[in-house]
Design a binder for these strands. Structure first.
Lengths: 326, 326
DNA sequence: GAAGAGCGTGAGAGCGCTCTCCCAATCCTG
DNA sequence: CAGGATTGGGAGAGCGCTCTCACGCTCTTC
């Protein structure tokens, strides 16, 4: 079982290695009869191009990285499969590999060197810690990067996001158009763009809303709802800035004897799997994660093929998924 | 911003390229003073080895693939992040890349050619369709593969699994040691090893259990529980073969006016995030997914470095996580 | 003290591919 | 029909690295 090289294909087809290479890479200007001869030789020998050799001369790895936060922060995060799926859809037909990296000691630095040494053509950064210097270094080095989600500080970088503000407004209007009169919100962490925007978008619609802070975790949803019921027992509508928090919060409502949505209407955010495992099923704001991921991949590939292309942001529209909770 | 090559490092350090290479690869037998000279040259020039060039001569890609079912089947699957995390933990310190591939038209074939053309050193197969010919082809070609989970048909392949039978027995004994007298189970799909073993392990402990079939989806959990209550209204203990099904089934119990665990005790399987989003939180059988994934990676790496090493199976012990449902 | 063993080093041959030349053959155009 | 323009194909030079091999040096050993 020996390797078949282009050399051998060329020999079998009776052409030069250069011509064989042209056929393999679909280059124009090869005579039809020679092209067929080469194609026959390829299939008869079972030839597969050696990527390393190609990569060595083209200086492209045909691989991109997906940098993720570690398992703990990812825990219960429903997005991973969707993100991978969206990226894959764009990337696979082009023969580009998707390399997964989870944040851990030295990971981001490793990603940087993978990029520099030509092992990766670009990276998609998910859930970036605002204090992380790596994105800045990547930009400074002019390497292809795309961010999932708006960066906290404005910076010249391409990112893809959903219109968080509009999504929160959607939730607000839903609660207002129900019979809710005493409306509250449980927020996400205020040191993240998503946390900030969801609050701002909500307050723009319901300026007098009661605000209790959470951090997107289920745990914090429980605590926040307990606090909310203490300080504002007559609440009848809550926008909870993540489904996971809502999932923790709803049982608190039940235990207090309140019915959802009859006594208190609840609207979540994300349309994650937690929305379906809640009872009642959650009315929530949906982000088109898979499409967004696909767009990230597309943006990254564009940066790779056109190194000096301008940075840009692509903002998707959220939509309201009406279920039973509000 | 030009690339630094080994040549240049060697020139700066005043040694030959061969010696510089030896230092980079940590080879023995390089004089201490020269080694230091080279290391200084490396850091002063910011040298990073070109992986493609290395790969071309070593014929190793230093990358492994993780073949996953597509998004739909993955939906709500809590395992992905844990699997990735476990594999990463083993693989990253060795500089090996983890390439994710989701099943779709032609994916598995592509994985095969990636392997053959030296782009991937091995693959981990998750949730393999029993009818899929690719695993067989991989084995036939003598390429490194590890399966997540026992294959349906016995075949000479390395796999890592949890002792499903023992796990089901754990659940059974839990229900028996509670005051349950009328015990039932909602099974997984009987054309999968996990589905079969969980049922078999349970029946071995509770031979007279009522059996209703499900297919691991939430949806099927709802339907199965409705059927169960119809055919066996006095049930007071249920083993549900996946947390996701249990998550769907519990609300059915509530709606029927039964309390969990007072009227009906429920034990799930997987210890997935669905166990925590259920109310009450699920008592369930835990599989150490992350550790199992790490072991898969280890097994795969072993096969890669020792091509003729024997196939084997590694079986992990499950454990019972006692929460509130049973 | 000469011969053998051992060890560190450098020279150089590739790994398999792409891509730039350059040449030959064909095509137009005046 | 001559000259230039156009086109297809081949030769060959690398891409950056590893690794074998041979060389020279020091260290034994009889």
């Amino acid at each position: 079982m020996k390797r078949v090289t282009l050399e051998e294909v060329a020999r079998v087809a009776g052409v030069s290695r250069a011509t064989a290479s042209r056929v393999v890479n679909g280059a124009s200007s090869v005579d039809e009869s020679l092209r067929h001869a080469v194609q026959r030789a390829i299939s008869s020998t079972g030839y597969l191009p050696n990527i390393a050799a190609r990569s060595l001369v083209t200086r492209r790895a045909d691989a991109i990285g997906l940098l993720l936060p570690d398992e703990r922060r990812m825990d219960g995060d429903p997005h991973l499969a969707s993100v991978v799926s969206g990226v894959t859809r764009v990337v696979r037909p082009l023969g580009v590999h998707l390399v997964l990296m989870m944040t851990g000691p030295g990971t981001r630095e490793r990603a940087l060197s993978d990029l520099r040494c030509g092992r990766l053509d670009g990276v998609i950064l998910v859930h970036t810690d605002p204090a992380d210097p790596v994105p800045g270094q990547l930009i400074a080095a002019g390497l292809p990067v795309v961010l999932a989600g708006r960066p906290l500080e404005p910076m010249p970088i391409t990112y893809v996001d959903v219109d968080q503000t509009a999504g929160a407004a959607l939730a607000a209007r839903r609660l207002k158009s129900s019979r809710c009169t005493r409306i509250a919100t449980i927020t996400g962490p205020q040191d993240t763009p998503a946390g900030q925007d969801r609050l701002a978008g909500f307050l723009a619609e319901v300026p007098d809303a009661v605000v209790v802070h959470g951090d997107f975790t289920r745990q914090s949803g429980v605590a926040a709802m307990e606090e909310l019921l203490r300080c504002c027992p007559d609440v009848d509508g809550v926008f909870i800035a993540s489904d996971l928090m809502a999932n923790g919060a709803i049982p608190v409502l039940h235990r207090s004897g309140r019915k959802v949505p009859d006594d208190v209407a609840v609207v979540g955010f994300d349309d994650s799997s937690a929305a379906l495992t809640s009872e009642p099923e959650l009315t929530t704001v949906r982000q088109p994660i898979t499409d967004m991921a696909a767009e990230m991949a597309r943006q990254l590939l564009r940066q790779i093929t056109e190194p000096r292309s301008p940075t840009m942001s692509v903002i998707f529209e959220p939509s309201l998924v009406v279920r039973d909770s509000g």
